[in-house]
Each structure stands twice: as C-alpha cells, then as structure tokens.
Write a protein that binds this DNA or RNA. Sequence first.
DNA 1: TAATCGTCGATTGTTAACAATCGACAGACA
DNA 2: TGTCTGTCGATTGTTAACAATCGACGATTA
Lengths: 205, 205
Amino acid sequence: MEPQLVRGLGEQIVERLREDIFSGRIAEGEWLREVDLAERFSVSRGPIRDALRQLSWEGIVQTDRNRGAQVAASAPNEIQELIIPLRRTIEGYAVRLFWDNLTDADFERWEAILETMKKACRERDFATASEQDIAFHRFLVERANSPDLLAIWSVIVARVRRHFRESHQRYDNPMDIYREHTPLLEAFRTGDKQQAILLLEEHIR
Amino acid sequence: MEPQLVRGLGEQIVERLREDIFSGRIAEGEWLREVDLAERFSVSRGPIRDALRQLSWEGIVQTDRNRGAQVAASAPNEIQELIIPLRRTIEGYAVRLFWDNLTDADFERWEAILETMKKACRERDFATASEQDIAFHRFLVERANSPDLLAIWSVIVARVRRHFRESHQRYDNPMDIYREHTPLLEAFRTGDKQQAILLLEEHIR
DNA sequence: TAATCGTCGATTGTTAACAATCGACAGACA
DNA sequence: TGTCTGTCGATTGTTAACAATCGACGATTA
C-alpha cells in the first residue's frame, strides 16, 4: 500500500499556509479569516477550519474563541534552552528504540534526504536545506515506530521551525549544514549505539 | 475577564469522551462513528469531528482517513522512561521562569487545588485526585507565562493521562497522593529556588 | 468629559444535505 | 479452488445556509 497520496483538502491547506507563514508572506500578528481563506483556496470553510485547528496545535497560529486565528509570534530565542535538552532526550530515546531494526532501506532514505540537502546547501537554498534537516531528524523519530514519540517531537519542533531556517541562514558556509549530518548517518550504519547517541546529542544545539 | 466559561460543543464532547474512555466505558479498539456520536450527544457531526480531531492529537484515538476513529491502545508503560525526564526539564524550566513573580493569589490557587485533591483522596475518588494532580502541575507551567512551554507540556501530559489515573489507583493509602504535593507548595512559598527544583524533579517519577 | 449601555456588523459556531472514498463481498474466470 | 474485478453500502469529506457570539462604536447620561 502506498503511503496515502491523496490527502484531504485540510492537510494541503495546512502545508500551504505553513509555508506562507514561515516564508513571511503572511506576517506575524495577521488575522486569518475563514471566509478569506476559503475564497483564496476555492474551498468551503470546513477544510479551512480543519487547517486552522491544526496550525493552532502546532503553535503557528493562535485562536481566540469567536474571534478567529492570528499568526502567532515566533517563539522567543530563549526557548532553545528548553528545546535542545528536550530534543536530545527524545531523539536519543528514538535511537535506542530503532537501533536493532535498521535496514538498508532506512539508510537509503537518510541518504536521499542528505543528497537533497547537499544540493540545497550548494545552491544556498536555505528553505529546502532546513526542510531536509527537519526531515532527517523526523525520520529518525518515525523509525522508532512509536506514535507517542512522534507526536511529542512534532509539537516541539513545530515551535522552533522558524528558528531552524533563521539559524541556517547564519552559516558562512552553507555546506556545513550538510557536513554536520553525514557523521550521524555513518554512526547509525557502522558505529556503536552509545557513541551514536552521544554524537547525536552533541549535534543537537 | 473570566477564563472562558462558555465552551464550544466540541470541547464539552472531548471531555465526556475522554472520561468514557479512561473509565473503560468505551473499550480500547472500539470504533467511534461520527453519526452515532452525533446522535448520542444530540449535536451535528461538526462538533463531533472537532472533538475526534482533538482526541487524535492527544493520542487517545487513532484516525484512519475515510475510515474513522478508533480508541487507541494505551501508551506502553515504558513511555514513562521518556516522559519523566521531559517533564523534569519542562517543569524545572517553568520554576526558574516564575520564581521571582509569585503572588499570594498563586499560592491560594495551588492551595485550592490541593484542598480538592485532599478531599478526593479521602474519598478514594481517583479520577478527581488525578485531575487535581495534573491541575497542580499545569498551573505551575501556566504560571511561567510562556504559551510555548504550556503547549509542549500539554501534549506530553495528554499522552500519559491514563497512566496518571492508573498509577494513582495503585496507592495503598490514597492520602499519599496529597502528601507528596504539600512539600512542593511549601518549597515554592518559603524555600530557595534550587532546592525547590530539586524537590520537584524528585517528585516527578 | 468620562463612563456606561445598547445596537450592529463582522466573524466564528453549528447544522444538514450532498459528494467522494474505501473495504467487504459476491460472482466471473483461469 | 484461488484470484481478480466490479458493485454496493457504510462512513467520512465537503459544502452552503443559518445561528450565536463578541467587540467596536456611537448615543446617552451623570
């Protein structure tokens, strides 16, 4: 079975809005009105409501009852002090869960992500590089095969998605983004578990 | 402004379904059909869909596209190995944020929660005792005044809400649930910050 | 003039009808 | 007999009309 190609309108709208917000096309504080969005995407308010509810969970918009949704302020930079230890805990836990079950297909998946990342870095396409960075870690968590783990990780990362892109833009040499990931994959492939976890924890910063 | 007394139908339904599931009235694996629920609660499918979406985020039900929602299996017990360090990190971070801003009103709020908890413990009302336990910690996180912190905490705790109640039911003397919280409040009131954080981290287990 | 009250419009909340989708199952076929 | 295929029913996805709510704003009053 293919991994669900046909997605609901709501999910498609979530992605488009998310990208609009991260890229700055929709500004912080701006109100998102259901009828406007419905018209823009040529759908009814139903799927729009679904999308706004989801973005609200992700912390990307803030909803006031009977008032609507507005684009949330980006989390303050200090939140990284919190996010980093949380991610280390979660992703380290994920490694322990999947460690004995890796297959060639998994390595290929990570390699494909890194390949796309390398290309994006070369072209200074920070948006794509960030997405691949997130994808690399997301697959790591997915691979642990625990819906709870993935849900928790997703919410946490959603809160700092914008920081991902911003911090990447500060690299003098964008290729470093790629080069910081290859040792991880190498450790997954040939290293020992404890050392891989340590490497991962150092990588998250 | 009062803290939002009128709630939407969806939110009310979330609470009733959550209670039905935790109490076992709706069994694990059971399918929740929108039309059935709509009839049962005498509302249309709209608010039901909202409620199921929310329960899905909380990990209490699992939704398959075009198939519906079924009550999810309770998170495995091992998930506590993950949740405990995460909660220690988050709640410790919260204490550092609110420490210099506590008012008498805050202490009164915590006291009110503990009073309700004490009564519930005496009556062996584990459902209420668990809710108050969660409320105690939730207020602690709320008090840090960071929407991001609260959102992350909420998702994490939602995933182990059932474990809260189950673990409480294993107490020989339910009054211990209450007695384990009073030193925390005392430390917030009169203790020093580092010691309070240490006490809190030991408490979370 | 400042505070209060009531109306009104903009916006979300809710509803019910209609459309699309998926899995189960029966029947054809090798 | 086992596999494929197409239909059908159950269920969710989507839509558009209607209801309820909230805040803004202006009129009223002390």
